[in-house]
Nucleic acid binder design. Structure first.
Lengths: 139, 139
DNA sequence: AATTATATTCGACAAGCCGTAGAATGTCAA
DNA sequence: TTGACATTCTACGGCTTGTCGAATATAATT
């Protein structure tokens, strides 16, 4: 259920696997100390807390999460919601792929969406209509 | 015009810059020897031919291009058309991003498309309709 | 205050990817 | 045989990511 933003075969990645894991924890908890994140991940894998701290630090440096001073202990929280993040990331990726082939990307988008959640197709249609009106108005 | 599949800010990449450059040459020429690719790139940058050969080799190993025995000299050609490639790549990336947030990805997709080529919105609508019929039939 | 427990920071290493290319080797014709 | 050109090997440097141990700072206890 926790999504990985890593493609299997090395072709394209957005975040490292551990970075992703940690972000998932933060999204789930909304906010957590390094200790908590560590505890969460340790239920599944054995890992040193410093490892978690380091990656937390790196994520903060990249701007994906915020490091805040809680009462006597630092707490981390996502800088973006899952939605915002997905939006942000796909924007970059898509723009790049579009330069190669808009058509190909569109086709694959619809395919992926259909396979993943067919009902979402309607919502996408709606989105498009909305967008078109928006564009029409803006001129 | 030549598309880069590299995001600027480190967040997500599909191919290295030189790999992309070389693939672009191959898509443009459909098929070419290492020498030719090198010549093409050298009109813009100074680079050793072995560098080109190495990357060509790596691309072949990754399955993005094919290395074929021409008459006395190897020739390389894309293993996928631009469209197929974009499709392939976005499929992986999108699937991953969907796991984070379908809604966010959809929103950004429409945005990116609208900004890049508004007319394509209609084609996307058509694609969706087509897909929906396809799905309806298949059950 | 002195000691112990916790939290945080630093610096590092290994592995993998990518750009880069020289050196070595292979191949074919003059 | 001697070149000229083609192909392969090996390798370095830089950057990212997972992984930590050691050092240091901070707070809690005795």
């Amino acid at each position: 259920m926790a999504g990985s933003v890593r493609s299997r075969e090395g072709s394209s990645k957005v975040l490292g696997s551990l970075e992703q894991e940690i972000l998932d924890v933060l999204w789930k908890r909304d906010e957590a100390t390094g200790k908590t994140v560590h505890a969460d991940i340790k239920t599944v894998r054995d890992i040193a807390i410093t490892t978690v701290l380091t990656v937390l630090e790196r994520l903060a440096k990249k701007g994906y999460i915020k490091k805040l001073k809680g009462e006597s202990v630092f707490v981390f929280r996502p800088a973006f919601s899952k939605e915002e993040f997905a939006r942000e990331v796909s924007n970059g990726v898509l723009r790049d792929i579009f330069e190669i082939s808009r058509a190909g990307a569109c086709a694959s988008f619809v395919d992926a969406l259909a396979e993943t959640d067919p009902l979402e197709l309607d919502k996408l249609s709606a989105l498009i209509e909305h967008k078109k009106k928006e564009l029409a108005k803006d001129r």
